[in-house]
Amino acid sequence: MQKSATLSFEKADLLKLYQDMLLMRRFEERASQLYGMGLIGGFCHLYIGQEAVVTGIQAVQESQDTVITAYRDHAHMLACGMDPRGVMAELTGRIGGYSKGKGGSMHMFSREKNFYGGHGIVGAQVPIGTGMALAHKYKKDNGVCLTYFGDGAANQGQVYESFNMAKLWGLPVLYIIENNGYSMGTAVNRHSCTENFYMRGEGFGIPGKLVNGMDVLAVREAAAEALDYVRANQAPMILEVETYRYRGHSMSDPAKYRTKEEVDDYKTNRDPILKFKGALMNEYNFTEDDFKPAEDFVKQEIKETIEFAQSSPEPDASELYTDVYVEEGAQ
C-alpha cells in the first residue's frame, strides 16, 4: 500500500498539534463569551472537547485534499489554515468575515484553503462531499474529500445514498463520523439501533475503523492509514471517531439530558488537550517551558482575533443585494 503520510514525532510537529488544539479551545471559549455579550447571534455550535479529532486528521491531509462538514465547523476552518480573525469576524457578522458577514457561524467557505463549508442542514454535506470526490477522480488530481458528519447525521437517508454511489463508482472520499454521543439532546442509544457507526458501511462493502477521538496521536495515525487506503484504492472508507462535546448542542442548550458527573469525567480524565500535554511531558520529556511559545502565540492570536472581530465594520447595506448571482459569464 502507498504510504503517503509519514507520521512525525519531531518536537516541533508535536508542539504544533498542541498549539492547534489550544487555539481551537481558546477560540471557542471566546466565541462563547462574545455570544453572551450579544456580539454573536443566532445559532453557535461549539467544538470544545472534540479538538483532537479535526487536529489529528487535518495534520495528515495533503494539499490537494478537500474538506466539508456541517455546522459545528469553527475548528475545522482553523485546522484548514483559515485565519481565526476572518472566522470570528464572520461570527460577529462583520465585513471582515470569510463570507462578508452573510453566512454566519454555520455557513463559511474558503476555496483557497479547500474548505467547502460549513453546512447548516444535518447530513446534506455528505452527498456534496461525495460529489467533490467524484470531481477529484474526474480531474485525476489524487485528492480525497474528507467528509465530516456526526452520529446524529449518520441516520439521514442521504448518507446511505452517498455510501452506495461512493462504493459503486470508486470515489476517493473519507467519511469521518464524529460520534460525540448525542444527536442534539438524544443520546446515541436512544437514536440509533446499532451504535457501531464504523460498521455502517458493511452492507456496501465500505471498510470502517474506530478510533479514540480524545487522543490526537491515535486520531492522526488512524487518519493517515485511512487516507492512504482511500487514495491508493480509490474507494471510500469510514472513520468513526469517539469524542465528546463539553458544551450544549448550541448556545441555547443547557444540556440537561446528561449528568454533571459525566461531563466532569471527560473534562478531568479524558480532556484531549490536558492528556496530550501530560503525554508530551511524561513520554516525550517536554517541560513547561517548551509549551510557552505555543501558549504565547495562541494568546496573542486570540487577542488580535477578538479585536478584529469587534472592530471590523458591519457589511454595507448594499451588500444585501450582492452575491445572489454570478453576473460574469452569464449569457
Partner: peptide, 15 residues
C-alpha cells in the same frame, strides 16, 4: 437526494 447533492459537490469542485 443523493445524486442531486453529489452534483452540487462536483460543481463546487470544478465540474
Amino acid at each position: 437526494m443523493g445524486f442531486a447533492g453529489l452534483g452540487v459537490g462536483a460543481a463546487f469542485n470544478g465540474l
